[in-house]
Design a protein around this nucleic acid. Structure first.
Length: 275
DNA sequence: GTCTATGTTTGCGG
DNA sequence: TCCGCAAACATAGA
C-alpha cells in the first residue's frame, strides 16, 4: 500500500509524536514472520533507544542505539500509538512498549510487512536505487540508468526499486500521465525531451502526494492511514489512477485501464501515445 | 460458494 | 536481459 509519499507522511507523524528519545522497554510479537523470529527480535530490541527516524525508498528507518530497525509496510502495514492494556486487535502483529508509557502498535492485515533489526544496513537497503527527492536524482543520473536498460518498458522500469526507490503503482501511473508517456514504451525509444519530462514528473507527483499527506484508497481499515489515524487526501487529486472510464483531465478522452507488468495500469490512450 | 482484484516484493523458469 | 507467473496472505466485491 504505502509508497514514498505515504511513508514520508508516517515519518513526519513519528517526528510530531516525539518518538525520538524513547526507549523500548519490551516487545510483544503476535506473528513471528513479521520480525523474522520473535524470541531473538525481542531480546535484541529491548533497551534500545530511538535516535532517529528517516526513510529510504519505501522503508521506514529507525536508528536505534545499537541497531537499525527497517520496516517495510508492504500492502497493509500500519503503526499507531496505544496504551499497554489495550486489547490485542485481530491483525496486530507487533507491539513495542516505550519507557514513556505509550506502546507502539503495528497492524498488518495481509502479513506481508517486514521488520529487519540489524547493524548491517547494506543487507536491507544496499540494492535500492536513486532517491527521487534527493539531489542524487539528477537528470544525468536518470539518463544513465535509462541507457543501461534500453529494452525495459517504462512501467516495469519505474516499479523496480533497484533503479529508483519509492515509486509504486499509483505514482508510476501518475508520473507517466504527467509526462505524456505510454507505460509500454521502451526506454530506448525515449527522446531527450521525453526523458526530461519524466525526470520532472517523478518528483512532482511525489511531492504533491506528500503535500496531501498520502493516498488512502477505498474506505475500509486495511487501507492507508498515518500514525495519527488520519486518512490521506491525495486520492482526490489523482489524475489517472483508478479513474478508468472517467475523462482525462487534460484532453477529455475516456481513461483506459489494462494489465501491464502484472499490475493494473491506468492511462490516457490519447495523450500517452505508444508510437 | 466462486472468481477476481488489491497499493509490494522476491524468486523461479523460459 | 527481460518477462510472466506464483507466492507470501486476507478481504471485499461482483
Amino acid at each position: 500500500m504505502p509508497e514514498l509519499p505515504e511513508v514520508e507522511t508516517i515519518l513526519n507523524d513519528f517526528l510530531s509524536a516525539h518518538l525520538i528519545g524513547t526507549i523500548i522497554k519490551n516487545a510483544e510479537v503476535f506473528w513471528s514472520k513479521t520480525v523474522g523470529g520473535s524470541a531473538q527480535f525481542i531480546k535484541r530490541i529491548q533497551g534500545q533507544k530511538f535516535k532517529k527516524v528517516s526513510r529510504r525508498g519505501k522503508f521506514l528507518v529507525f536508528t536505534l542505539s545499537q541497531d537499525t530497525l527497517f520496516v517495510h509496510l508492504r500492502m497493509t502495514g500500519k503503526f499507531f500509538f496505544g496504551k499497554p492494556n489495550d486489547p490485542v486487535s485481530s491483525h496486530e502483529r507487533v507491539r513495542l512498549f516505550l519507557d514513556d508509557g505509550r506502546i507502539l502498535r503495528y497492524e498488518d492485515q495481509r502479513k506481508f510487512g517486514r521488520f529487519f533489526l540489524t547493524d548491517k544496513l547494506e543487507e536491507v537497503v544496499g540494492d535500492l536505487g536513486l532517491e527521487p527527492l534527493n539531489a542524487e536524482f539528477s537528470l544525468n543520473a536518470f539518463k544513465k540508468i535509462i541507457e543501461e536498460h534500453p529494452l525495459l518498458k517504462l512501467k516495469s522500469f519505474l516499479l523496480n526499486q533497484n533503479y529508483i526507490a519509492g515509486l509504486g503503482n499509483i505514482y508510476v501511473d501518475e508520473a507517466l500521465w504527467d509526462a505524456k508517456l505510454h507505460p509500454l514504451r521502451t526506454l530506448q525509444s525515449l527522446s531527450t525531451q521525453e526523458i526530461k519530462a519524466l525526470h520532472h514528473a517523478i518528483p512532482k507527483v511525489l511531492k504533491l502526494g506528500i503535500q496531501n499527506m498520502g493516498t488512502t484508497l477505498g474506505s475500509h481499515l486495511a487501507n492507508y492511514y498515518s500514525v495519527s489515524g488520519r486518512r490521506g487526501n491525495h486520492q482526490h487529486q489523482l489524475k489517472v489512477f483508478r479513474r478508468n472510464g472517467l475523462a482525462c483531465p487534460r484532453c477529455g478522452t475516456t481513461l483506459s485501464k489494462s494489465r501491464i507488468s502484472q499490475r493494473g495500469t491506468h492511462f490516457c490512450a490519447q495523450c500517452q501515445i505508444i508510437q
